[in-house]
Design a protein around this nucleic acid. Sequence first.
DNA 1: CAGACTCTCATTGCATGCAATTTCGAAATG
DNA 2: CATTTCGAAATTGCATGCAATGAGAGTCTG
Lengths: 257, 257
Amino acid sequence: MSGDASARPGQQMKAVLRLRELLLSGEVGPGERVAEIPLAARLGVSRTPLRLALSTLAHEGLLEMLPGGGFVVRDFDPADIADAIELRGVLEGTAARLAAERLGDPADLAPLRAAVAAMEPLVRTATPGLADFERYVVANEIFHARLLDLADSPMLRRAMAQAMALPFASPSSFVLAQADLPESREILVLAQAQHRAILEAIEAREGTRAEALAREHARLAKQNLKLALGDAALLATVPGNALIRRGQSQGARKIAS
Amino acid sequence: MSGDASARPGQQMKAVLRLRELLLSGEVGPGERVAEIPLAARLGVSRTPLRLALSTLAHEGLLEMLPGGGFVVRDFDPADIADAIELRGVLEGTAARLAAERLGDPADLAPLRAAVAAMEPLVRTATPGLADFERYVVANEIFHARLLDLADSPMLRRAMAQAMALPFASPSSFVLAQADLPESREILVLAQAQHRAILEAIEAREGTRAEALAREHARLAKQNLKLALGDAALLATVPGNALIRRGQSQGARKIAS
DNA sequence: CAGACTCTCATTGCATGCAATTTCGAAATG
DNA sequence: CATTTCGAAATTGCATGCAATGAGAGTCTG
């Protein structure tokens, strides 16, 4: 996460990081209008850098500018989240395809291969512990990062960073949620099989197949989302869960601004 | 263009608009480090709103933050532009697919149909004038906007806006460039055929076909790019041409940050 | 003569004060 | 009783002043 280019330890960065925490944890609720002065006091920064931070988070999509000035915390309905995941799938599919099309030396696949290897233990363990899951998450994120590297496209990298600014669109947002799920092992086996298949497709320079696989891989997250939406306890483990609009008509698809 | 949410006529908006002009016109050249104080004087705004504007344009991708502070004008090599167009194709493909999958009442296609109809005259005219081209460009942009509407996905809309912040990734960046080209008519006929086909595919709810068509449609722009890169006079008519790095190894593909 | 150190200047980043706009509340009128 | 209009307070947006960090040039030493 934190797609910010450079992390200089200024007041502005401090404000961005701290405010993002507040938003994701729900301490500043969705739909709520954020007031600058109390927030500045709360974050321990002045209004000037806070304002920059607000602008940044608005560009990331967590805040929304009001026409009259000021910002509100954006909220997301299930359809938004599903679309965000779908979008990530599309972008990762493109990354996989480009990786396949542009692969030079097959040795360049080593980092990807290493990430896949690092995830094997969890899948092969009969009764994985929480530590196993966390190691899996790390390796999973490395896998996705290396895949993006292989695509070798700054433009795609930008788009991806933008899409993953929404926390629940991140590759492993729902991995920890499924830790408690009975069908967890099945899902992980499936996911890992897809990891291997993507790697294989890239190595064989099968761009279309790699793309389709990466998309399907993201659909797994969408499936987990559906499961989590039914169980409040499960949903609470998802990173940005506080931003999800609750108790709303789930089928509502008419918010297109 | 100008994907900014609300256009309040403040100093900040003024700075963004004016500075964007300066960047696209090349009056502030690529690679150049922008100094706040003289720029503020030049734009007629204070440093505070200018700073917000700089942040905005950095998020749009036209500027780049330096680790030591400050900003430089970003430049784009041919590979970057090609990737930007490819990316737009991917996103528009997704829009077309979602439009097909989510289409409710076929009557919702009326706006899209109207845009296609508005483009017909130019294609059917044997010797189109500049005015014809401009009307085509308008209708073309309406077509792409309506397509995005049909996808009915705020997330996709965001991603699209981000991708099209780069001026040469816009749907009709290269249309005016090809006005002088001899093969112009051929290309337009092809493009219009694709418009019709996309519409047809959506109506028939053929999502995959709609996606493939939209991607191929974007590839037309990529082809025009290649043509324009050879001819300096042609390139000069492209919107953000000042940002393109010239006299560089065109095959260089190793700038992945 | 080359390299490194220091001093100085410019530029960015931050804080505070002020003005303008908006919003909320209350009162008055239809 | 609802609605509209006017007013006051709060909040955003903007400008300026100051401090801190980084760059560059000049000089001194090895």
